[in-house]
Design a binder for these strands. Structure first.
Length: 228
DNA sequence: TCACTGATCGTCT
DNA sequence: GACGATCAGTGAG
């Protein structure tokens, strides 16, 4: 079991009820061997882990609350038709960032989830901002706190992720990396994936039960959107 | 809260 | 030229 992370922070409650940390979190970088070799297991493993962006102007730490697994041979996966220039990062060893641009105005961040050359990954769909919230607000504009990183496009925007991070090793020293989970282990829910037309009935979406920081319709989240 | 729609542009066929 | 792992804005119930 992974070591616990001491959050080393005191929290203050904002008018919206959001709990904002005052001090930097103490984080342990995940190593590649910490990551399950199976994308479905990796998608569950990443719930409760942190994604850390040291991209300018300052550090943002967010606790991952929602993921989707895209497997080898999965018609909904970008790897389904084989390797192209766009999806090459999806075929890297597990733990690399696969960033793609979609719908003309959004980036999405994935974590490659298999051995080199296989082509599997985990889409990070939502997270709860823990540190650098002001920086996220600057990037995201005037939106409700629970909407800051809720949705794959919003998450990438809030972390400052662009195509420049495509192919980055999230287990190496760099501006974008994964940290070990902290706090009580998340209770994980499961549902079908969102926004796809192929293999849409496969239950490969995972989320933290009870979290307010989830995308998608309420019915897929176990009716767990907490009012703020 | 949900349904609907337009914006936007890279990738692939 | 069509499609797409999305989002924000708007209106209805």
């Amino acid at each position: 079991m992974l070591a616990f992370i001491d959050m080393q922070r005191s929290r203050s409650e904002s008018p919206s009820g959001y709990l904002a940390p005052r001090r930097s979190l103490k984080l342990r970088r995940l190593r590649r061997r910490d990551l399950p070799l199976d994308a479905t297991q990796l998608a569950q493993f990443l719930i409760g882990c942190a994604i850390v962006s040291d991209l300018a102007p300052r550090r943002v730490v967010a606790r991952i609350t929602e993921t989707e697994a895209y497997l080898p041979g999965d018609a909904a996966a970008h790897s389904f038709r084989g390797q192209t220039r766009r999806n090459a990062s999806l075929f890297l060893r597990r733990g690399h960032a696969y960033v793609y641009f979609i719908y003309g105005n959004h980036y999405c961040l994935n974590v490659s989830g298999a051995d080199a050359g296989v082509g599997a990954g985990v889409l990070l769909r939502a997270a709860e901002p823990l540190e650098g919230i002001e920086c996220v607000r600057q990037r995201r504009g005037l939106v409700a706190d629970r909407d800051l990183l809720r949705g794959p496009g919003r998450l990438a925007q809030g972390l400052g992720v662009t195509l420049a991070e495509d192919g980055a090793d999230l287990t190496a020293s760099g501006p974008l990396w994964l940290a070990a989970p902290f706090g009580a282990p998340a209770k994980i829910g499961r549902s079908v994936r969102i926004g796809i037309s192929k293999e849409a009935d496969r239950p490969l979406r995972f989320f933290e039960l009870g979290s307010a920081h989830l995308s998608g319709p309420k019915i897929l989240n176990g009716g767990c959107h907490r009012p703020f």
